[in-house]
Design a protein around this nucleic acid. Structure first.
Length: 784
DNA sequence: ATTACTTGCCTTTTT
DNA sequence: GGCAAGTAAT
């Protein structure tokens, strides 16, 4: 009966068997953390704790899903379905849906994703008539998000001396006002952003003792995964929920704290022992994942950090190979090396595609790897793109559904009011917005009363048609299920038809995506609609809230036999037989944004620790001498982290670059600079052989061949002596040369002196109106 | 009002 | 090198 304990080591068993009272598990990388958590949940249930009383919080949907599945497997029954396992965001959203009315929100509140939130910020900035150049929505949103994560209210933000000084120094003193307006606007829209899901839940617990008591009694056992990544909001919530029973179990590894940019504070885990009396601490230090070499290197790396809980990872696994450090000329060569090596390893050691992961610091690095893998026909999956539900056509369709469920949702309304085009253009929308703001009503209420605001007859008509249509959808909701309503919406709005008629490749894809969306709604509606004892909310509103919290990783099959490409952040918690840690260059990793303080640098080092410990058998660390950034070539030093690796445990090689035959020849590959610097430092110059030449390589790969360019304007190459003349000298009747349009004659001059325009008839391109302030014109002859 | 093209700005990591 | 915002043209 208790055979689930059999596969555990001493420490792990200690953690599992501790049932009552606070528990902190410091779980080193690969030490069986998930196993301990899931076994502990199973053990709680085996000793009589009701699944309904157990709450387990994770950071990703995937971790939650895996945990639930593993508990089910251990228990061998379906009691696990009654567990409350989910991400912080999804669990709190679910509770808020039941309680939102208490804090003045509609229960069918909309969840704004980051794009929606930035759009609201932008709206607010525009309405406050602030300079959008200075107040960039993304920057301001980040600032607001940080404040929320730190539980700083708009009032506190405005009154805090240091925060204000910081904003003034950044020349953005109005952020406090934007923050305040943003919150009010979201509230008016009946919407919460991601941070609100934590913040509002906290407010709810803090403000209503009966609500707090209800959930304290419900969640008698609380488990938190990745505790080192919690922020102050999450910390306070856990503290409140756990205050009654103090059965709080946190699992984490301070060495893997890599989310400070999202407000995570490593202090939460460092100080857990001070938060409760009698904290039981268990350290899991035996690693079951990696070779001794990898573990040794990881330990050496992290030793350079100061602030940490002392622990040393060890393993009984084989010592394995040395870590390979590989230098290439360019980022493309890096990609090529990795793809070649994967191919070679597959052949020589019979690895499958899914045994490989290419991990990098920034998403922008994925391109070179994608290209090289595609060229070698190696299947891969890239994580970190936009999720299915963030695609334009999906968001447009979903916006209809959002508006049907929540009429206050201004972002949804703005998205679809003229999609498909029905003649409600920018001018009209601006007018609606202005009126709505001055009368302090929502845009929708404005539309419902459009007849009172003096729109032109035609405009009024289309507005009223729109209102009638949306209302008819809403009334459908009362009698029909979410899928039927969604299907009807697609039909009635002509959206589906319009996409169906678009026969371009992208159009076809968009059409298929919409079909997939409809299928997913259908699946949602038809999946079992109650978990034992608790009716699951199958409304359209619940569906919409749920999909906003899905990431692109949630749509992908982790077991697919493909090479995985992702950022190191996304790889936390995963393991692969063979790992390529790419782009180990100064300014990239550690990233230029994170080298200004000791704290930042230590977090970068923890990131490096994370990537090293993802590998089970083999680890390559690669870097390029030069790489493209924003389309131009930059040169970087090797990362300082490479210097921190113990020399006895690594092999350094040079994988060369470009095409071997023509490395010093004239030709096809790379710039002169690349070819010239190709030969220096010949550590293992035969490495090309060692890593095996890819089969049947062309001398000039097709990706380097010049591409024919399509031009719409008739070609004109400016004369060699082209020089722009002073615009004030231009007069009617002159022959002029334009850099792109070619030769022509000035027909007419218009505009005032600040906004001079010329009508020119070009020999090749017809008449054009040219703004003289910007155009570069050469006067060929003066007829005066 | 809508489209088609040019420009400017960018990138750190994400529930 | 790529996307969103701004602008010229129908």
């Amino acid at each position: 009966m208790q055979d689930y304990l059999a596969g555990l080591n001493e420490r792990q068993r200690e953690a599992v068997l501790h049932i009552n009272g606070p528990l902190m598990i410091i779980a080193g990388a690969g030490s069986g953390k998930t196993k301990v958590l899931t076994t502990r949940i199973a053990h709680l249930m085996a000793t009589g704790v009701d699944a309904f009383n157990i709450l387990a919080l994770t950071f990703t949907n995937k971790a939650a899903r895996e945990m639930k599945e593993r508990v089910e497997r251990i228990l061998g029954n379906n009691e696990a379905r009654n567990l409350y396992i989910g991400t912080f965001h999804s669990v709190f959203a679910r509770i808020l849906r039941a309680e939102a009315h208490r804090i003045g929100y509609p229960n069918s509140f909309t969840i704004y994703d980051t794009d929606d939130a930035k759009s609201v910020v932008k709206t607010v900035i525009n309405e406050m008539q602030l300079d959008e150049k200075l107040y960039k929505p993304a920057t301001v949103y980040n600032r607001i998000s940080s404040a929320k994560n730190a539980l700083v209210t708009p009032a506190e933000y405005a009154n805090d001396y240091y925060i204000q000084q910081e904003d003034i120094r950044g020349n953005r003193p109005a952020i406090a006002k934007i923050y305040d307006a943003y919150c009010k606007r979201c509230f008016k829209n009946g919407a919460m952003d991601f941070d609100d899901l934590l913040l509002k839940f906290y407010e709810l617990l803090k403000t209503f003792p009966d609500v707090l008591s209800k959930y304290q009694h419900k969640f008698r056992y609380i488990m938190i995964d990745e505790y080192q990544d919690t922020n102050p909001a999450q910390y306070e919530i856990v503290k409140l929920l756990g205050a009654m029973n103090e059965n709080v179990c946190v699992v984490g590894d301070d060495a893997q704290s890599i989310y400070s940019f999202r407000g995570a504070t490593i202090q939460n885990i460092l100080q857990f022992q001070k938060d409760y009396d009698d904290v039981k601490v268990v350290k899991l230090e035996q690693n079951y994942r990696s070779t001794q070499n990898i573990i040794h290197v990881a330990n050496e790396v992290i030793r350079n950090n100061k602030a940490q809980i002392p622990k040393v990872l060890f393993t009984e696994n084989a010592s394995g190979e040395k870590i390979k450090i590989v230098r290439t000329m360019t980022d493309n060569d890096e990609g090529k090396f990795v793809a070649d090596t994967i191919q070679e390893q597959k052949l020589r050691n019979h690895y499958a595609n899914k045994d490989f992961a290419i991990l990098y610091r920034t998403n922008a690095q994925s391109r070179a790897f994608e290209e090289s893998l595609r060229r070698m026909n190696i299947p891969y999956t890239m994580y970190g793109g936009i999720s299915f539900y963030q695609r334009k056509e999906i968001k447009d369709f979903v916006a209809y559904l959002r508006l049907i469920v929540n009429k206050k949702d201004e972002e949804a309304l703005k998205r679809i009011i003229n999609y498909p085009v029905r003649g409600i253009g920018k001018t009209t929308i601006d007018k609606i917005l202005l009126q709505a703001n001055t009368h302090n009503i929502t845009m929708w209420e404005m539309l419902e009363n459009a007849d009172r605001f003096g729109f032109r007859a035609g405009t009024l008509n289309v507005i009223q048609d729109f209102v009638v249509m949306i209302r008819s959808f809403t009334s459908m909701l009362e009698k029909q299920n979410a899928y039927d309503v969604a299907f009807h919406v697609g039909k009635q709005t002509n959206l589906v038809k319009e996409l169906f008629n678009d026969k371009s490749t992208e159009g076809l894809q968009r059409y298929e995506n919409i079909q997939e969306l409809l299928n997913s709604i259908k699946e949602w509606v038809e999946s079992p609609d109650n978990e034992e004892g608790e009716v699951v909310d199958k409304s359209l509103g619940a569906y919409l809230q749920q999909i906003t919290l899905l990431t692109d990783a949630d749509n992908k099959d982790p077991d697919a036999d493909t090479v995985k490409l992702m950022t190191i952040h996304a790889a936390k918690g995963l393991e692969f037989a063979c790992v390529f840690a790419a782009g180990l260059e100064e300014m990239l990793f550690p990233n230029a944004m994170s080298i200004n303080t000791r704290e930042e640098l230590e977090e970068e080092r923890r990131l490096f620790y994370v990537v090293v410990t993802r590998a089970k058998k083999k680890l390559w660390i690669t870097y390029a001498n030069t790489r493209y950034k924003f389309g131009s070539l930059v040169q970087n030093e090797p990362s300082r982290f490479i210097d921190e690796l113990p020399a006895d445990y690594v092999d350094s090689t040079y994988a060369g670059g470009g095409t071997k035959q023509s490395t010093f020849g004239f030709g096809s590959t790379g710039s002169a600079y690349e070819r010239m610097s190709g030969g220096w430092s010949s550590t293992g110059f035969d490495a090309g052989k060692k890593f095996g030449p890819p089969p049947a390589k062309k001398t000039t790969p097709e990706y380097l061949s010049p591409k024919p360019e399509a031009k719409k304007v008739a070609d004109h190459t400016p004369s060699a002596d082209f020089q722009a003349s002073d615009v004030n000298d231009i007069a009617v009747g002159q022959r002029v040369e334009h850099q792109k349009f070619g030769f022509g004659e000035v027909l007419k001059l218009e505009g005032n002196q600040h906004n001079k325009m010329a009508i020119i008839r070009f020999d090749q391109n017809g008449e054009k109106k040219i703004l003289l302030n910007y155009a570069r014109l050469r006067i060929l002859n003066s007829q005066l």
